[in-house]
């Protein structure tokens, strides 16, 4: 019996459920992650879903290489990570770049809109220019109304045009952690 994606509890945002459904409808069957509060709902959906592989990583760059391996075997992979972890991926991004492997990551931002933990600011400010220096396409989402169109565009660019694409989820949408 196929996995039924549940509805969000009353008052919770719907976008993580919509995004998860969109990824599954596109045929993504491997979800790797390094845990982050901003991606908690999607990570938990993948863990509850017997139709997909939910893969706990020890460092984010493993997800970059896994995605390439998944493509070798004919599956689609998405890496769920926080922006600080995107910095751990820089050298491994060589692999999708020179091999023209599809690479898609959903990145929850820290160190952007309204950040209260100064330790998060350096990578928050650096990550987009650093990723773009590595020829990764960065698509930023600041409002939940943009989720469907932006993630759809990202999937097309990754899986059809074989680009490396990061969808950056701003704290403007995710909400701001209090310190």
């Amino acid at each position: 019996m196929p996995f039924d994606i549940p509805s969000p509890p009353p008052g919770d945002p719907n976008w993580p459920y919509e995004m998860y459904k969109l990824l599954k409808d596109e045929g993504v069957t491997q979800f790797s992650y390094v845990p982050d509060a901003g991606l908690k709902v999607m990570i938990n959906l993948s863990l509850d879903d017997p139709d997909v592989h939910s893969i706990p990583l020890t460092t984010e760059e493993e997800g970059v290489a896994m995605a390439a391996g998944a493509h070798l075997g004919g599956q689609k992979h998405v890496l769920l990570m926080q922006s600080s972890g995107a910095g751990n991926c820089i050298n491994m991004l060589s692999l999708p770049r020179i091999g023209k492997f599809p690479f898609l990551s959903i990145v929850s931002m820290r160190g952007d809109f309204g950040e209260g933990n100064p330790w998060q600011m350096p990578m928050g400010k650096s990550i987009q220019p650093v990723l773009e220096a590595c020829e990764v396409v960065c698509l930023k989402i600041e409002d939940s109304s943009e989720v469907i169109s932006t993630v759809s565009a990202a999937m097309t660019m990754a899986f059809q045009s074989q680009e490396s694409v990061c969808v950056l989820l701003s704290q403007k949408m995710l909400g701001i952690k209090k310190f």
């Binding site: 893969i55 760059e61 493993e62 970059v64 390439a68 391996g69 070798l72 992979h77 692999l95």
Partner: peptide
Amino acid sequence: VPMGLGLALA
């Protein structure tokens, strides 16, 4: 290792 793991799962 992670590339091989992605392939093995697929």
